[in-house]
Amino acid sequence: MGFIAMSRHICFLVYADFVLLDLSGPLEAFSHANRARPSAYHFTIASMEGGSVRTSAGVEVATAALHTIEHLDTLIIVGAPAVPAGGWVKLMATAVRHLSTRARRTASVCTGAFVLAESGLLDGRVATTHWNYAPQLQARYPSLRVDGDRIWTEDGHVWTSAGMSAGIDMALAMIEQDVSSDAARFVARMLVVYYRRPGGQRQFSSLLDFDPSSDRMSAVLSYIRTHLREELSVQRLAEVAHMSARQFSRVFAATIGVTPSKAIERLRVEAARPLIEAGNQSFEEIARGQGFGNADHMLRSFQRVIGRTPQELRRAIRQAREEGRAAGAGHMT
């Protein structure tokens, strides 16, 4: 085919009603990387049987049969608007497990993680998917550890990402690993996306936007949001829910998906983050204002929730702004 030896073969595995952006986003990222390093990647879009595959948007995409794929570097299973279901999932999972033995890494975007989990490749690993499906993934596959907050994860040779644009974030991280940070930064600028949202960054307002079926838990979440600066004990929240402390802890975790203490911590981190990125207040001021008590406690919470310290976030924002100003000046010359 004329590809140089260093060219890495990326295979995207699709199926009926897959989300086009889960394919096109990462594909465009890898394609743009070829402008930074010619022939860094080449691509195949595959399905189990090959032929035309319909997307959730109704667009038809031509594919190769999966059994024809050879010399594979990276296999990426794309996602769909709903959890993959049906007998074909087990068949695809078996094929994925077999093909992964010939790939340097295997990955998924959004609900593609369900196929990856069915293959057994996620057993004992940390994985993510779209926040809306994370509880279902964890319940169906208890042998893996689902972190529904993360944008993407890398655990050994297996990668997973959340939905939609998170596939681009994962691709950027792969490009940085395969080619260079300069190449990944170039791709981010060309796609007009941030370089780079770390894997540990939370998915967009997943807890804030969660709408529990329980009115009591909705009331508790509202109470937490409006009292972040205060001491929020389980007993206090149980009183808001009109439950015993023991019953409240059990119902809250079952309904929200995390313990009350983790929910409070995440909400505080989410409230503090824009203040940190704005850079107008000291870390101590922000920590006291959002209920952390002090900057050290806030630092540890940020490390647990998003995998980055407040200092790293502030530096990253400053760097992004400087790069944006530099890029703008470059366009004007």
Score class of each variant (00 low, 15 high):
88 W>F: 04
202 R>C: 06
207 L>Q: 00
32 H>T: 12
180 S>W: 03
7 S>H: 09
37 R>H: 12
95 A>E: 13
139 A>F: 07
82 A>T: 12
153 T>F: 02
40 A>F: 11
3 F>S: 14
21 L>F: 10
215 D>G: 08
114 F>W: 04
201 Q>C: 09
208 L>T: 14
264 I>E: 03
78 V>R: 00
302 F>D: 07
36 A>E: 11
16 A>L: 09
181 S>R: 02
161 S>T: 02
331 H>E: 15
331 H>D: 15
117 A>H: 07
283 F>S: 04
266 R>G: 11
126 V>L: 02
56 S>H: 09
252 F>D: 04
227 H>E: 05
108 S>F: 01
112 G>R: 01
69 I>E: 11
104 R>W: 00
179 V>C: 06
87 G>T: 00
229 R>P: 08
45 I>P: 01
30 F>E: 09
227 H>S: 07
79 G>L: 07
167 G>Q: 01
218 S>R: 12
182 D>V: 06
9 H>A: 04
299 L>S: 03
197 R>P: 14
81 P>M: 12
158 V>P: 00
39 S>G: 08
40 A>Q: 13
326 A>W: 14
121 L>Q: 02
328 G>K: 13
114 F>A: 10
177 Q>F: 05
313 L>S: 15
310 P>Y: 12
231 E>W: 13
183 A>R: 10
97 R>S: 08
331 H>N: 14
287 A>R: 15
218 S>T: 05
66 L>D: 05
21 L>W: 05
211 D>R: 13
161 S>L: 01
251 V>W: 07
328 G>R: 14
305 V>S: 02
116 L>S: 01
145 R>G: 03
184 A>H: 06
284 E>L: 03
316 A>S: 15
128 T>R: 01
189 R>Q: 15
276 I>R: 08
313 L>C: 13
60 E>L: 13
282 S>E: 02
217 M>P: 09
8 R>Q: 15
25 G>W: 13
157 H>E: 06
223 Y>W: 14
185 R>G: 11
227 H>I: 05
193 V>E: 08
141 Y>F: 15
272 A>L: 13
21 L>Q: 08
5 A>D: 15
67 H>G: 10
12 F>Q: 01
124 G>W: 04
28 E>R: 11
92 M>F: 05
42 H>T: 14
285 E>I: 02
112 G>V: 04
258 V>M: 11
305 V>I: 04
134 A>C: 03
